[in-house]
Amino acid sequence: MPSAGDAPIITVEHLTIGYGETVVLENLDFTVPRGAVFAILGGSGSGKSTVLRHLIGLETPMRGTILVNGAPPVRTAGAPGYGVLFQSGALFGSMTLAENVALPLRKWTRLDAAAIDTIVRSKLRLVGLEGFENHLPAELSGGMKKRAGIARALALDPPLIFLDEPSAGLDPVSSVDLDQLIVALNHSLGMTTVVVTHELASIFAIATECIMVDHEARSIIARGNPVALRDGSTDPRVAAFFNRRTLAA
């Protein structure tokens, strides 16, 4: 289990990101401690998903550096050192749940079919989907797809997992179930979790630390524990976000 003295698992320095020539956020500096549930917050269009895409190596920064476990996120070889849950689950529609979860195991391990099958079943059991191994993604509900996506992200037992808007599209009960699963994974496995979200209930339930990005400021406008920010931030934008009110109020 990680301890407080361990080096951060993610280090971001002077990061400037955007699309084409449009700068979305600039000069971002932050670290993600090992073992934390770290939330990246912000309003719609603030750039938080863009930050995530850079952290998982799908986009190249305009300037600055990102180190994930001591290496740049854009890998040229070797197994990924992290798992990712995309907003819609991003399960491969032509494969069953079992095949989806088995895919990274077949690619990156030399395990035989029986061993892979055992691991797949254990991952699906972990997320409460035992019995659905032979279902296709189209036969599942939104919440089940998210859980299956987490199972696939955990297939290689990574020390780090990224979750992109995990509660999006879920009913309140499914959202709470997912939050509890995230907390359980963090407590039991010591897994560092980076969550992009704007769901306040989830933020307070799961996040130990957070940064808040703002579209107009094009930078981080708050960092720290979400509850402390809600109760103590003097920035009107931060207070408005955490207390769910308009800026004019």
Binding site: R53, I56, R75, P80, V84, L91, F92, G93, R152
Partner: peptide, 12 residues
């Protein structure tokens, strides 16, 4: 539906 992105993050 981000499945291509998912492939890349799985190292494929």
């Amino acid at each position: 539906s981000e499945e291509i992105d998912a492939l890349r993050t799985l190292g494929l």
